[in-house]
Design a binder for these strands. Structure first.
Lengths: 219, 219
DNA sequence: AATTTTTAATTAAACGTTTGTTTGAAATTT
DNA sequence: AAATTTCAAACAAACGTTTAATTAAAAATT
């Protein structure tokens, strides 16, 4: 369901990709500590020793997942927001669409990211990678907000950190809790694909309206 | 830092409380699977066997934490929103204040809850407890929204699920990522207590404005 | 083109730790 | 005297990682 193998084929060979993809899914489902290297090896149909052989250790396997996933998204974001001809409101919409897409296509990785984020003071390398990623997003969105403010479209005194946390936190919470959404709205009978479309559409509308409201609402 | 022992003293004896409090902190910091019963026993200064003796198993220890924490918050929420003389806008503010307080005083438990929430299909008992809690909150807030709509204060077509997820997700994300907030805003030198006050205040203002905006903004 | 040499991939088995839990005796409280 | 609490020790199972032997692939030499 979760891992989009294609994205990983550039750097790693077939077996490595299989390991990475399976590990990503299992780490998301069971947590890092809750997943054994034998679980991964079994699900990926490779020998246990191959994980050490290819990635050095379980820890470094996690880092390999992070390393790739993060670097691939940073570029897209930058490209997205650097288009000077698009007006700030439209950029906000693009931002939301892009984030929701990413979330839907990389649910497993987002879960892992959230987990590692919560643990904190664990792997120092990962903390560095995550902070750097957050900083970049913060700077890009700060620039976008500033642009909107200069053009008199957005209100003053916007706390960008809180705004980004809201986008990330709200989206993740909705998406991670989609089973609850189903049950609360009695949508269990709906085909999975239809439901995904519905959820995505509603999330987009909701988040876009929310940000427009936050950015223009006067106290 | 995290566990407020007092709340637990009613049901459990001194040693049990110590175990529960320590376990809550360690589960939050390292995850459930990442924490061993020996870690807990060591940090709580009791023998390893005491955990099985008192709680049956590591799994049931987690359930004991959940069982208490959830039942204690549900009542407060109900009491908070049932006051009929308070107007809907004010109730939203009370809701936000209450949630931010809870989050600050029970950070560890919220982290654990988020972790277990993400894993999904794990412990069936826990899944049931969590869903029941979410359902209750959903119903209470739905009633509040309906009341505001009836009085013509809130706009129509509000997706309460998405709204609740936004409150929970955004708050958690901000609070869990407070170290990033510090670093991004260069507030590392500020005394911890001052920073906590600052963050809490900003969160409250931000969330209140956000919900007012969401609830009144017309497309 | 065939053969040898070198490198890489794969394996089952074993390594020493750590895991959650249980035991049965000793200490403490009731 | 009876019931509860505490403890060091032991349990098998699972953990991440390494080893040394074997197979497969690639490169080099004849």
């Amino acid at each position: 369901m979760c891992p989009n193998l294609k994205d990983m084929e550039s750097r790693y060979n077939e077996k490595q990709v299989q390991i990475l993809a399976v590990a990503e899914r299992l780490f998301a489902e069971q947590g890092f500590s809750g997943t054994s290297v034998r679980d991964i090896a079994g699900a990926a149909s490779v020998n246990v020793a191959m994980i050490s052989y290819y990635f050095g250790s379980k820890e470094k396997l996690l880092e390999a997942i992070f390393d790739y996933r993060i670097s691939s998204t940073a570029i897209q974001m930058e490209h997205l927001l650097s288009q000077t001809q698009v007006d700030p409101f439209e950029k906000i919409e693009m931002l939301v669409d892009h984030y929701v897409d990413k979330l839907q296509n990389n649910t497993c990785f987002f879960k892992i990211m959230q987990s590692e984020h919560m643990k904190g003071h664990g792997n120092k390398d990962l903390d560095g990678i995550i902070f750097q990623s957050k900083k970049k997003n913060f700077d890009l969105i700060s620039a976008l907000i500033a642009e909107g403010q200069k053009k008199g479209l957005f209100r003053k005194n916007i706390d960008v950190s809180l705004m980004v946390s809201t986008l990330v936190g709200a989206s993740n919470q909705i998406y991670i809790g989609q089973e609850y959404y189903k049950r609360l709205h009695e949508l269990d009978d709906m085909p999975e694909e239809k439901f995904q479309q519905l959820l995505k559409k509603r999330m987009r509308v909701f988040l876009k309206n929310m940000f427009k409201a936050i950015l223009t609402y006067e106290l």
